[in-house]
Design a protein around this nucleic acid. Structure first.
Lengths: 225, 225
DNA sequence: TTTAATATATGATATTTGTCATAGTTTCCG
DNA sequence: CGGAAACTATGACAAATATCATATATTAAA
């Protein structure tokens, strides 16, 4: 089993602010697991009792709304921590996590990491900074949901996925989602997503190959409508 | 000028986690001001260089969307801190703050409070817990915006204001907002808010007296549509 | 490989919501 | 007090989006 001291992934998250001793302690109590595509990692309302550090792969964080439809709230990738909010507030999770690809994750039990939160202000501040960034992002999403059309929101989602997660050699978005997932990001019906993607394709803004999508005209996508 | 040691308001926010010495230092460098109704406290994109502690009154945090309309992202009241996110990330604010009533606030300069963030993990954790709560709230708002109808969102906004900020002796919501403010919370046109409020009134779900609103049938409001 | 299941696609139609126009009401100042 | 400005109200219509039906394509399973 790999150990945290040599793990490059921690440079991307708050674990980099732990002291050498703290990191060794964490490394000794963590567990690693592989999660297959489509698997539920945890469900809304569960006690997760720790934090996940993503070493490989992608997952979606969703929340079930009253009408029975899932809303995708965030995409989590290699380098991200998952579960900090529930940890910090000592609450059950408000979101479910589902793998969108095969994943490798490490799980750090709550007790160990809480110690550091109470004792290492640089670590706590680092977590705080990430959460502050998430909150700013969430504010932006709220404004977009409230004020923009479905077409604009879809264009933004595509641009976001492009800039945040990049493309493969052929220019295809590395994150591959179903039309339904896009609907659950944008907050609309699957049919609406299909229609708008068809329209974008017809207008030369994107190209598709199966589920894969390539952005062809980002300038126009940015100024939809 | 009052001092923080005797100020009851700090019990409601993270300032309660400061040590006695830290609090004295903060108390000596803070400034107090009165802000009149309607006044802009800070504007999106400004460096605010500190944190506001609300001693009295109410204000709205808004973000201007691309189409020129404001979205109300949060209501801030007595006891709340304002500006932590920008402080923590060392960024310009992403939101504007406008007083909805006469307010009394204290302003704590950035430099002083940053010291505590780096040195007092209990204080940092307290801030972190508040932000975690804000983030969970924000996730809920995202889901509601994405998945619910305007009517449902308005009903929720009314119920939220009722439960979070309470009523006066006559049962009227203590927070009094214009129809336009409600539109900017719900993310819809002012006319739609007016129509739906009229409908709610006709159906006996609310009563109104000028701008004041009283919830008459919360059970039905919770299950709209 | 063939079949079943799932995902994508598209049309027709209903519903929701936004926009524009206009009028009545309240609030705020000079 | 009186008049302007801002807010509330309502109708008519347009635009956006959801829903339902059905067809086709793609993927998974037997």
């Amino acid at each position: 089993m790999s150990n945290c001291e040599q793990c490059i992934v921690r440079q991307f998250n708050a674990l980099k602010s732990l002291t050498k001793e703290e990191l060794t302690r964490i490394s000794n109590c963590k567990t690693s697991k592989t999660i297959s595509k489509g698997q539920l990692i945890f469900d809304e309302g569960e006690h997760i009792n720790g934090v996940y550090c993503i070493r490989e792969g992608i997952c979606k964080l969703t929340k079930l709304s009253a009408n029975g439809r899932d809303q995708i709230v965030k995409l989590v990738v290699r380098g991200d921590l998952m579960g900090q909010r529930s940890l910090v507030c000592e609450e059950v999770t408000n979101l479910s996590a589902t793998a969108l690809s095969e994943m490798k994750v490490c799980f750090i039990p709550k007790y160990e990491i809480m110690t550091d939160l109470h004792e290492n202000p640089e670590f706590t501040l680092d977590i705080l900074q990430h959460m502050a960034k998430d909150l700013r992002e969430a504010d932006n999403v709220i404004v977009n949901m409230a004020q923009k059309s479905v077409k604009q929101r879809l264009a933004e989602a595509l641009l976001y996925i492009h800039s945040a997660f990049g493309t493969d050699a052929a220019g295809m978005l590395t994150i591959v989602l179903s039309r339904e997932d896009y609907a659950n990001i944008v907050g609309t019906a699957t049919e609406s997503i299909i229609r708008i993607l068809s329209q974008f394709k017809k207008d030369g803004l994107i190209a598709t190959k199966g589920k894969q999508i390539k952005l062809e005209d980002m300038a126009t996508l940015r100024n939809i409508e």
